[in-house]
C-alpha cells in the first residue's frame, strides 16, 4: 500500500536528498524543507521504495502537501 509523505509546515523545498526509485528505510531523510530560515528534514515514515517525488527544489509548499510517495 502506498504511503504519502506530507509537508509538516508551509515553506519551500530546499534540497531533495533521494530520487524516485530509491529504496528508503524508515527515518531516512528524503528532502529538507525550509521555512522561516529553519531547515526541516522530511523523514521516510515507513521503509520501502520511493515511487514518486512530487516536488522540485525551490518549490513553495503548503502544510499537508504531498511531497513524495513510498510504495
Amino acid at each position: 500500500m502506498a504511503t504519502s509523505v506530507e509537508a509538516q509546515i508551509t515553506g519551500s523545498v530546499w534540497k531533495i536528498e533521494k530520487a524516485a526509485g530509491d529504496e528508503v528505510r524508515e527515518g531516512d531523510v528524503i528532502m529538507i524543507l525550509e521555512s522561516m530560515k529553519m531547515e526541516i528534514p522530511v523523514e521516510a515514515p515507513v521503509s520501502g521504495r520511493l515511487s514518486e517525488i512530487r516536488v522540485a527544489e525551490g518549490q513553495s509548499i503548503d502544510e499537508g502537501a504531498v511531497l513524495a510517495v513510498i510504495g
Binding site: Q8, I9, T10, G11, S35, M36, M38, I40
Partner: peptide, 14 residues
C-alpha cells in the same frame, strides 16, 4: 517567535 513549542518549535507561518 512564530514557533510551535508543542511541535518541536516548528515554524508557524499564518
Amino acid at each position: 517567535y512564530a514557533e510551535d513549542p508543542a511541535r518541536g518549535f516548528l515554524p508557524s507561518p499564518g
